[in-house]
């Protein structure tokens, strides 16, 4: 057992697990930045709203309302679905787009939601929306991060190692969340 070169194995595992995890580190890091600012923007969708005016539609019949709305809004395809939330409003649903028509006035609110491609997928994975097997992949990734953090402490020896300047960085890095939490919980 005395021949076991733990530091060498530590470096090898740190390196290879690092290679293995790099895509996930980027996904979780980029998505972390995106969802951290959810109060300021929607990290998953580009949402647009537009108001257009058409002639009022005076009818209670679904087919008539849909046909007139399609003609007046110059829509070539039939809607995916149709709904009347209240007596004055008709909604036409198209993929990613909703037309809410105020029938007596002809004012139409067009809402469009387009996923932010790549970022949307990153956020779904980061927030474990798929559940199932992804839960275990994410667990494995979390364990990998812990391993990389701890193994990273023991990569170098000497003045740049943990016993040298490393210990000060570890101390500062540990104090940061600790002090912030004390301030947040008790002092602010």
């Amino acid at each position: 057992m005395s021949g076991f070169k733990w530091r060498r194995w530590n470096i090898v595992l740190h390196r290879d697990i690092g290679y293995f995890s790099v895509a996930l580190v980027i996904i979780y890091g980029v998505s972390g930045l995106a969802v951290n600012h959810v109060a300021d923007w929607n990290p998953n969708y580009v949402q647009t709203k537009e108001i257009v005016q058409i002639d009022p539609i005076i009818s209670f019949d679904k087919d008539t309302i849909v046909t007139l709305a399609m003609v007046r809004l110059q829509l070539t395809e039939a809607p995916q679905n149709y709904f009347r939330p209240d007596p004055e409003t008709a909604q036409l649903f198209y993929p990613g787009k909703t037309y809410s028509i105020d029938l007596p006035t002809g004012t139409v609110l067009i809402e469009e939601n387009r996923p932010r491609r790549v970022l949307f997928e990153m956020n779904q994975l980061h927030l474990n929306a798929p559940k199932g097997i992804w839960t275990y992949i994410a667990d494995l990734f979390a364990l990998s991060l812990i391993f990389m953090g701890v193994s990273g402490l023991f990569i170098l020896k000497g003045k740049n190692g943990l016993k040298g300047r490393g210990k000060w960085f570890v101390l500062i890095g540990t104090a940061l969340p600790l002090l912030y939490w004390i301030w947040y919980q008790f002092l602010q």
């Binding site: 998953n44 809607p79 679905n81 649903f93 993929p95 909703t98 929306a129």
Partner: peptide, 14 residues
Amino acid sequence: DGVIVFPLEIKGQN
């Protein structure tokens, strides 16, 4: 919250 997440693009589907 977080247990099920419905994406916006399902609006209009059954």
